[in-house]
Amino acid sequence: MIVIVSDDSKGDYGPALAEAVSQTETQLVHFSANALTVMPCVACGSCSGKTYGRCITQDDMQQVLPKIAGCRALVLVSPVVFGGVSYHIKKIMDRMAAVGDPRYRISEGELVKGMSGQGMNYYMLGIGDELSATERAAFLSLHEENRKIMSAQGQAFILSGRSGQASINKIAQEIVYG
């Protein structure tokens, strides 16, 4: 299954990507992060202790976590905000710790972690106009660091607010078959 979580408060790239992926008959779930009620992670530690693998905060994240737990690919779609993702998307990311593997591994000589499922692909799609070189590099580096710490595969894409359906279709192809 492919899970797309998008912040659609500033554009409809998330729904457009979901539409393009659904054309390929891949199993898909799409969440609009800005329409969900998700509290910030308060670092209570329960998901790696008392309620191992489960987040105890009862809100809409309880619908998202089961989907992410077993997904083949996770795609986060966000406006590029200060070289990263918007707070709507960041709230989802922070709460994902519950479906992460809390044990440590070594990759390329450094400590990393992983996700609970097997071999998740992780993609980020950033949307922004006239982004500076620093903003673009920061967005790509955030994805790269996330990818490493999750021991995942996948890549980051950046589109301008004027990109057409063809660019979206290309990204959909990459996510489904890449």
Binding site: S48, G49, K50, T51, Y52, G53, R54, L65, P66, A69, G70, A98, V99, P102, R103, Y104, R105, I106, G109, E110, L111, S116, G117
Partner: peptide
């Protein structure tokens, strides 16, 4: 790095087991 990976994993697993869970079990949501 190898010492850290082993030690930190041991501590995490110890805490999970202390709470009555199997650290190697599939995720709760699955």
């Amino acid at each position: 790095t190898q010492v850290f990976a082993k030690l930190l994993t041991f501590l995490v697993e110890k805490s999970i087991k202390k709470h009555g869970h199997d650290p190697k079990a599939a995720n709760w949501y699955l």
